[in-house]
């Protein structure tokens, strides 16, 4: 395997909690083994700010604002294989709990009744630097085409490892039952 070109991998967290990234790091010392076969592009582990041409893109989290949509499209464009990692990317996950609430109304209500707020300075953030929110938290497949789904909240480190080593070995990734069995 050594003579082969290293595969370039990008990872990103959209509206996620970083738990899927944590689980990725939970491959522990196998991380060093992985580094013999891959190199990182944009990822919370590097300072690359925009995803370049990549072989694999791992996306954690759904899309909750316009910026998430933008980054996600960039990933789709530049990654040959795009993977939805974890419940949030696959179906919105826990942040999608806000979907049954009316966003505008809820924001206003909470903003006015929030506990222990400085009432005189409970002003409404309004700045061009803040990305606009989507009405609902969206699974990423509603925005781009997804090639693989890795279930779990988060998927276990063993599942992520099996998935990646399958891909690296040129096989179609397959997770046996124990790796798809949760809690």
């Amino acid at each position: 395997m050594n003579a082969k070109r290293k595969l370039r991998v990008a990872t990103v967290s959209l509206a996620g909690c970083f738990g899927c990234h944590t689980s990725f790091l939970d491959i522990d010392e196998r991380f060093f083994e992985l580094l013999e076969h891959i190199e990182f592009d944009r990822s919370p582990l590097t300072d690359v700010k925009h995803c370049g041409p990549c072989d694999i893109g791992l996306v954690e989290g759904g899309a909750c604002n316009a910026e998430n949509v933008h980054v996600l499209r960039e990933f789709r464009e530049r990654c040959k294989i795009l993977v939805a990692v974890g419940a949030c990317a696959i179906n919105g996950g826990l942040p999608a709990q806000r979907n049954h609430l009316d966003l505008g109304g809820v924001l206003l209500e909470v903003y006015q009744t929030g506990h222990a707020l400085d009432r005189e300075r409970a002003l409404i953030p309004n700045d061009p630097e803040l990305p606009l929110l989507l009405d609902k938290v969206r699974p990423i497949r509603e925005i781009v085409q997804v090639d693989h789904y890795l279930c779990g909240c988060p998927p276990s480190a063993d599942a992520i490892w099996k998935f990646l080593t399958d891909l690296l070995g040129g096989a179609t990734p397959y997770l046996p039952y124990p790796l798809r069995h949760f809690d």
């Binding site: 316009a66 949509v69 809820v106 206003l108 909470v110 803040l130 929110l133």
Partner: peptide, 16 residues
Amino acid sequence: ALGKMPLILELVAPDG
């Protein structure tokens, strides 16, 4: 925190 809001609310379809 859900306690603060932008003044402009936009509904954006998945295609942007």
